[in-house]
Amino acid sequence: MSLNLQSVQGTMLIPLWGRATASEKNPDILYDKEAIEIIAGCDFNFTEIAKTFGEYGGISYIVRARKVDDTIRAFIEKHPRASIVNIGAGLDTTFSRVDNGTINWYNLDLPDAIAFRKTLIADSPRNISIAKSFFDVSWFDDVIFNEDDGILFVAAGVFYYFQENQLKRIFQEMSLRFPGGELYFDAESKFALKISNRTVEKTGNKGAKMYFYVNNPKVFEDWSSKIKVLSCESYFKGIPVSKKWESGTRVMVRVVDLLKMMKFVYLRFERK
């Protein structure tokens, strides 16, 4: 099956490439065996993506995956039978790295993205795909939710593509339906978002414009009394800068954190 690269789904291949190439060189940050195997067996030409995103791009993808992995592992240590909903899953391979044998995992994405995903990554009894829009709240009924077991939603490189009013509405709906649930995602500042849009356009992709940014995470608490900000930390916090990286990569990592261009936001839907 072919994938339209002039679309949001077209960007699915970029983080897959990034995790495969960068994790081979930086296994101390993340080793994504499944991504490496998929890329090795994929006949798509990644030359243009590699040229555009380079070493820094790959590093940013494995750091994001590492932060998501760490958050999930900490959550399922407390809630070993939790449900994990991977919003805008694309070709994500997180389940293969974090599965504890008892969690229920859901890959939520648009029908064409899930159809493409299934050509490369098969579902299994506890790793299930849901072919629906994030904004189609009928997916709420497709996931197992038990308050005692907990539920964690993760979104990596997804919310950028949505308008603020869309996210506000769905976050409010989720806070009512999933009390005690938690949500972890990455975000950029307004300044960084402009740079990202220019970078994606360089790949020839004109159909994946990004809109949503976060300068101050406290805005989420204004959206609903049930939304609480647990943390907001700089993107590369806790990740050692390697001397083997190109000088440009080392500079970018420091600048991104210094200017608060990228961050991870962690929210909880309060039970009250």
Rank of each mutant, 00 (worst) to 15 (best):
D149L: 08
Y235K: 11
I128G: 01
A155Q: 05
V214M: 06
Y211L: 10
P15F: 14
L267V: 05
A89V: 12
S224A: 09
K202P: 03
V68P: 02
K78G: 10
S2W: 02
V137I: 13
V68A: 09
K243M: 07
N215A: 07
V255R: 05
I72R: 06
D222Y: 09
G57Y: 13
E270V: 12
V256P: 03
S225V: 03
I87W: 05
W245S: 01
F46S: 00
S242W: 05
E233T: 11
W105V: 05
I227L: 04
N165L: 10
R177H: 13
I195A: 09
Y161H: 11
F134A: 10
N205A: 04
S138D: 15
F75A: 02
A20H: 09
D109K: 14
D123I: 12
M1Y: 09
K168I: 05
L193I: 13
D43S: 01
K218H: 07
E201D: 09
I29M: 03
D43G: 00
E77H: 12
F159R: 02
G204S: 06
T94M: 13
T47Y: 00
Y235C: 06
A156G: 12
D112Q: 15
G90R: 07
Y161G: 04
D257M: 07
S196I: 14
L183E: 00
P217W: 04
V251G: 00
A155T: 12
G41Y: 01
Q166V: 04
T93D: 04
L230C: 07
T102W: 06
S133V: 09
A82N: 12
F162R: 06
A89H: 09
Y160K: 05
L5C: 01
G150I: 03
G207S: 10
P111I: 06
L30V: 13
V200Y: 09
L108F: 08
A74W: 02
G18Q: 05
F75Y: 15
V265C: 08
V265P: 01
F116D: 03
R254S: 11
T71C: 12
K228R: 13
V255F: 08
A122S: 14
V229D: 00
W17N: 00
A35F: 11
K33M: 06
S2A: 09
A40T: 08
Y31V: 07
A115P: 03
E173A: 15
L183P: 00
R177L: 07
D142L: 14
T11E: 07
K194H: 07
N4F: 08
G41N: 15
K118C: 02
G101C: 11
F135C: 01
K226E: 10
F44Q: 01
Y161V: 08
E182T: 13
Y211H: 14
T119E: 12
R271I: 01
I121L: 15
R81L: 03
A82Y: 08
D136N: 14
I38P: 00
I170V: 15
G207C: 12
E270C: 14
D148T: 15
A113H: 05
F236G: 04
I144Y: 08
K209Y: 15
